[in-house]
Design a protein around this nucleic acid. Sequence first.
DNA 1: AGCACA
Length: 447
Amino acid sequence: MASVSGQPQFRYTQPPSKVLHLRNLPWECTEEELIELGKPFGKVVSTKCNVGANKNQAFIEFADLNQAIAMISYYASSSEPAQVRGKTVYLQYSNRQEIVNNKTNADVAGNVLLVTIEGSDARLVSIDVLHLVFSAFGFVHKITTFEKTAGFQALVQFSDAETASSAKNALDGRCIPSYLLPDHMGPCTLRITYSAHTDLSVKFQSHRSRDYTNPYLPVAPSAIDGSSQMTVGLDGKKLEPESNVLLASIENMQYAVSLDVLHMVFSAFGPVQKIAMFDKNGGVQALIQYPDVQTAMVAKEALEGHCIYDGGFCKLHISFSRHTVLNIKVNNDRSRDYTVPNVPVANTQPSILGQLPSQMAGAPAQQYAGMPYMPSPSQPTMHQSTAGWGSGQVPQSMPMQAPNTMPPYGHPGAVPFQMGPGVMQMQNQNGFPNPGASNPYHQDRPQ
DNA sequence: AGCACA
């Protein structure tokens, strides 16, 4: 088809335009270089670099047509050609009247981040892990994930641009801590830019999108509790239906795990309503009831495969239960309803290990008080921030973060990412990862 | 060295 003017584009007879087309630029010429080139003739209001297959073309748009004419006229009669980095640049009027503003908003800070997860196993990164990672910087409103040519990506919505930029500054280019990822997963690097979005549209809670501001949002059919249908994840792996009740089995139980220990461990993620322990297949299992699915999901994500005690002892395996409401008839050393204050408590003397704080000994059954029991600084400071965690805790407070302090990733000198293998290191109160052997949440090391 | 992209 003939061009609009009916004339070939490479004639000198193109009508003037505020936009100039530049050719023969050095590879990956920057916007700054283009502005520098046009500045003597007027105000450059927009540029577009790295155009064309060789990325050696560009456009610059002046505020006024006369400025563009001035530049063309100057170089038309100049003995010195326009140059960038010593390379002659050829100029002509563009056949368009303005640069379409397709510049990525990558430089404009917004409250929504576009996160690209790099790595061969990027697709295996769950939305819950992303939630965990980004929640360290503030309340995460919504997350959506999708796959594009760029790979596996997520949009993460914060309340404001300040929070988003603190997360971006701290996380861009970093790897997701290995202890948050399933075993044998390669490193997953985060590349973060700002998105032009300000409010994501999340219709369902699902394995690919979440709205943490609306706990009543319908759950995607694939995740409805009771459907007992296995759903299939992105990786084709079977996923259990999500539930507010977790089934924890304890492997390699060298030490007795008491009800109180479980309560302490699971309370770190939100209010534990009920716990029921029982024996099955020669091992101990427990059902742990949270008020909502999201809290359970975060707890499951964080605790799965980790050990309550050092040395690979009492390794937790966690799945979603098909139950949604536990029926606790009596409070004793194996079952407890923390939502009912006045149920008589059977006298229990939990077996306490030396590693456990002395305060734990004989700890009375206590109603959930909004604050997870923090026996030592090396305990993980895990607090859930999703709706439904109605304690007085700082809502932004999340795992691996000292409450009310700078996010650990931003802490100078802190090296929470790309840490050594194996150990599930938690941030302690000073914001540094705690490599100490007293940390109760150690991941098994295969060797 | 010859007109762009989500």
